[in-house]
């Protein structure tokens, strides 16, 4: 394997790869519980392929990124800065935050939008060990009847959706796959 440098691992054909990546991201955000493949980037250790691809697709000098825990390594910092120019910011200012669930917590530190501008909220990219369609039951926009998704912390995510229309939105990444949970989804623990 070739050594990862800050200059490598970006998109080789940005307009096309970013377009495909966005479609996967949009599909999962529009359909909570669905799992899609998300590829294009080869990020350094500390970021999954899906999380790295999401960041290349969505972040740039206009968005603050918060790196949590293992994601906050010199290699990831250099790689992200080189490829996106996104400023690294504390959690409270982040447009995007990436890391393991426990490293990203507490949830209260992120922006949840304002009553007049609920869109001004953070999107968390949660790196997961596994991603599968079991566990909590999801209902709401994007879901025909119900959907299922394994979630890291049902109580915290329920509290987030109780803030609706405010709140954070989530991508869950695992290897080269992604799922999402917008704030509009109502969550019931596995019954």
């Amino acid at each position: 394997m070739t050594p990862q440098t800050r200059f490598s691992g970006g998109f080789t054909d940005a307009p096309v790869q970013a377009a495909h990546a966005f479609r996967a991201a949009m599909t999962v955000m529009a359909r909570p519980g669905e799992i899609r493949q998300l590829v294009g980037a080869t990020p350094p250790e500390g970021l999954s392929v899906a999380a790295g691809t999401l960041l290349l697709t969505l972040s740039d000098p206009d968005t603050g990124v918060y790196l949590a825990g293992a994601a906050d390594s010199p290699a990831v910092r250099q790689w992200l800065t080189f490829h996106t120019g996104a400023p690294l910011v504390p959690a409270a200012q982040a447009d995007f935050a990436v890391g393991l669930w426990q490293d990203l917590m507490p949830l209260e530190q992120y922006r949840i939008g304002t009553p007049e501008y609920p869109d001004r909220s953070a999107t968390l990219i949660v790196e997961c060990g596994v991603l599968h369609q079991s566990g909590a039951t999801l209902r709401g926009p994007g879901i025909r009847d119900t959907a299922r998704l394994a979630l890291p912390d049902v109580a915290a995510l329920q509290a987030n959706s109780d803030l609706y229309p405010l709140g954070c939105d989530f991508f869950f990444t695992c290897g080269d796959t992604v799922a999402a949970l917008p704030r509009s989804t109502r969550i019931e623990p596995k019954g």
């Binding site: 966005f22 697709t57 969505l58 740039d60 206009d62 447009d95 939105d169 509009s184």
Partner: peptide
Amino acid sequence: EQTKRMIRRAILKALAV
């Protein structure tokens, strides 16, 4: 690409709310 990213971010928030 930067303009597309800005629009894409808006689309994701629009889908979330």
